[in-house]
Write a protein that binds this DNA or RNA. Sequence first.
DNA 1: TAGATTGTTAATCGATTAACAATC
DNA 2: TAGATTGTTAATCGATTAACAATC
Lengths: 209, 209
Amino acid sequence: MSTKAPRIPLGVIRRLPVYLRHLKQLEDHHVQTVSSQELGAQLDLNPAQIRKDLAYFGEFGRKGIGYEVRYLIDKIEQILKLDREIPVALVGAGHLGIALCHYNQNKPGNLVIGHVFDNDPAKVGMRIGQVVVRPAEQLERCLREHQIRMAVIAVPAEHAQEVADRLVQGGVTAILNFAPAALRVPEHVHLRNADFTSELQSLAYYVLD
Amino acid sequence: MSTKAPRIPLGVIRRLPVYLRHLKQLEDHHVQTVSSQELGAQLDLNPAQIRKDLAYFGEFGRKGIGYEVRYLIDKIEQILKLDREIPVALVGAGHLGIALCHYNQNKPGNLVIGHVFDNDPAKVGMRIGQVVVRPAEQLERCLREHQIRMAVIAVPAEHAQEVADRLVQGGVTAILNFAPAALRVPEHVHLRNADFTSELQSLAYYVLD
DNA sequence: TAGATTGTTAATCGATTAACAATC
DNA sequence: TAGATTGTTAATCGATTAACAATC
């Protein structure tokens, strides 16, 4: 099919980058074609799930053959909008912010952290690879100027809500939050939490001994 | 009831730290008691879900009243095993590893990153707050010596699988992996992936414009 | 063609939500 | 007591898995 309509489950969207990464590895190893069975074995996922996930977006495989690796990579990148350059703002130039920014520059994709902000005068002006840290006052104006829709929050929990509010004010609609705080955002804004402490704490449950 | 048996859904376990964090905030604001209704409104969760989550582990509330904040904090910490000190190993003293280690020391809980490893001689001996980076060769021996069961992987993707294997060798049963790699671990080991790039990529799907 | 594998429908499984008796 | 809220069962919803016709 083609048109939108069938709301895609979050789980499907979150698996797409996993498929993408693995497909790129296969491509590096000059694998031309892969079946859902093979992919499932390699990623420890049910083959039917992989086929169903992909079928949400179109018919990308060939019966009796499988999926062409290069073609599927292109398709998934299109679906995730990774086929165009998307500017990303980062708020917070502490250890974590610097780490994320460096990583983003080391492994450059189409998600480009081009603007970093911090409210600490000691941090403003500092260079992280190619990028220079700007004062937090410029946040909203800069977001609008560059039409930035995606942002990463890497500030202390106490300031995370204020930053989120200002990102939304500036027109951001997708936020990845590393601060350990339950943020409130409007309905139309997609928020994803990636909080180190919570992850570790929930993992502690599974420690036996 | 009391005995184990009813396997707890992962989603429940992952919400417990969220409850915990919020309850601590309530305690800071001298709130003594909270109902599932209030908690749900504050965290944007269904009250029935909160009650059901907690009911997996016991009867912690009082009908007609709600939950006593302090008591519930204690109970959740017991469930997650945060009432005892758990040593955590960190492999990889790059930007991210340093960030995580600093954060862990700034906000000290009972999950203590007490050992950091890196295979880069330039990093070995470096101090991150209180902790000194040790050579990767000592990994297995040190894990065993200190009976470490939890570990964080913050190395490049190329080395993540090898590190995971060695952690398992050393007796680790719970791993938080920050490397963008689909790791393979034995059945008895709990693996959680927290990969920045994947998160950001899946978020890109929701950027409209 | 025969064997393999997709896309899709149907069956299963599990998680979320609603409803309500018990009770503070 | 009357009002509120839990713990829990039942109903709903959604996601995963199995099965298979279509077809390369």
